[in-house]
Write a protein that binds this DNA or RNA. Sequence first.
DNA 1: GCGTTTTACTAAAACGTATTCGTAAATAAA
DNA 2: TTTATTTACGAATACGTTTTAGTAAAACGC
Lengths: 336, 336
Amino acid sequence: MRQNVTVKTLAKELNISIATVSKALNDSYEISIDTKQKVLELAKKLKYERNPAASNLRSQKTKTIAVIIPQIANNFFSLAINGIEEIARKRGYHVLIYLTHEDSETETAFTESLLSGRVDGILISVSSSTENLEHFRELVKKIPVVFFDRSIEDIDAIKITADDYESTYDATVHLINNGCKKIAYLYALNCLITGKRRIAGYRDALKDHQLESGENLIVNHNSDEDLNYTNIKNLIINEKPDGVISSIEELALPCYYVCNELGLNIPNDLKIISFSNLSTAPLLKPSLSTITQPAFEIGREAAGFLFKILDKKPFDADEIPKLKSILIKRDSTGPL
Amino acid sequence: MRQNVTVKTLAKELNISIATVSKALNDSYEISIDTKQKVLELAKKLKYERNPAASNLRSQKTKTIAVIIPQIANNFFSLAINGIEEIARKRGYHVLIYLTHEDSETETAFTESLLSGRVDGILISVSSSTENLEHFRELVKKIPVVFFDRSIEDIDAIKITADDYESTYDATVHLINNGCKKIAYLYALNCLITGKRRIAGYRDALKDHQLESGENLIVNHNSDEDLNYTNIKNLIINEKPDGVISSIEELALPCYYVCNELGLNIPNDLKIISFSNLSTAPLLKPSLSTITQPAFEIGREAAGFLFKILDKKPFDADEIPKLKSILIKRDSTGPL
DNA sequence: GCGTTTTACTAAAACGTATTCGTAAATAAA
DNA sequence: TTTATTTACGAATACGTTTTAGTAAAACGC
């Protein structure tokens, strides 16, 4: 479909040059208010729509950002996208979505393809399987990038995260205060700074309270769901922990199923708390205590800082916020 | 960032024309295998990336599709996007996301902005507040559009939906078989064919079983959550139904809260079934019986047909599937 | 052998916009 | 009045690609 009405059409109709039309449409100071009005009016009347490809090509701005995330069927990422979209829409930006499905190669392919100038900037939450970071180092050199939530170390880019260490520490203390003596940890995102901070919070809390710790109390997340289930079941059978901290939502639900299978009562036999943005957490049986990250705000902040970079607005490193998660105590770690 | 390596660079390096380079990159039959290899090799070596803007401008193809949806923090739409993304990625297409937040004006703004040639095709799930359909009629004339799940009547475009009528009919019968005599309906999407089909299934099932029906048993969905809660509460207090069918997930959870507040037992006092793709439905208290739509497949199919149109592949209307939802009986409508 | 087709390439013209540079007229400064 | 400055516009070019139209040379048909 060739464009039916272009700057040329408007120019011819108004007997002015296309340069004038273009400038008028871009609200240039070089053009009189009079002319601007005429152009805008005609543009509206003829339903002129600027051709984005031509505009991008000439101006080297795409008015588009990319969001690369591991998955989307997860409330955290859905909410983050909501936040991103809100900021982007206010600015008239378009949002491209790329799902890595936690696969590092897919992620690399995306980042490489985005080097072509398709977008002005990129928001990334890193795949859990990512170990090689070369593609990110290349990327941040060539295009503005903001990492959010799932971030990596030693990279020259802004990272918007929540208080992973502190919130995990607090959650551990919460379990301890409610009587737990042997707390297991479901460990995920081990390659990422996010995962490392979380487990550090858990470990430090145990240490500060002189509680037993050890590798046998830790289950590593696996991409195979059945294996996760088995591993958790074995942990619970063999170690008989009285508390579990799950560093991701996906590992908390299997705990529920395992307890159902083994006839264990939550919270009497086992208390469970998990990182989660599940809207149904209060309706689970029993309701699930959660560390809930401000997903929407993380998205907003990440997008906000990306636009600051795009606008070349200077800012200090200490402006970058560390957002606060909230610890929501429910029945799975009860009694309150 | 000006492009550092372009077709021009490759052409100069290889001492051939840029036309040859371009054709080689596009695997044109006009170019010898020998030359193609040389070009591809050098392109790889110099990390050439085709400039999308220039390519779009000249070829009038964007390799991009738009997905317009009402919300994203909802498992149905998340899964649908997963399906869409899978198909799009296979084809090397990019996916733009637009969230209407159930607002018709936002929706209109999006559809109008997409007339500029930014995308090759559009997938839409209509906002619940959409009554005026003019912008859609304009849109489908100018660009390939496929509607999915939430569709509208009398429009010349492909619609991929599930078996809304049949599944609601079956769900109603399920309640009846489990002893319900007075079944309420939480009515949403009333402007859309989707909503109309669902309630028709409910009404016909009641009629076929000579059960009471009437407007007093129907609660209309409202954008104000508190009002929904109040309306549902009033319904339950005043009409004392023994069964509820919720045409959307968002209205099922308030039922749970209302029952908690009123001390009603689910399923003994009130049986509940809802359209839903909640992954935690089995873990709710009590577990929620659902009509679960094949969200992922709906996304896949919708994207598949969009690409058929873009490829100008002919197909018969009877190839367009009506996807089957599944009725999952759980404790909220128990006993089984 | 000659005419015809095929092969493999190129020059040049788009695609529609933004921008640089130049300029005539209007206004301000002297 | 003369000069300097500002205002409002236009011509032309560039962005990097795809495509059209054309053409030598090679291959083919008979």
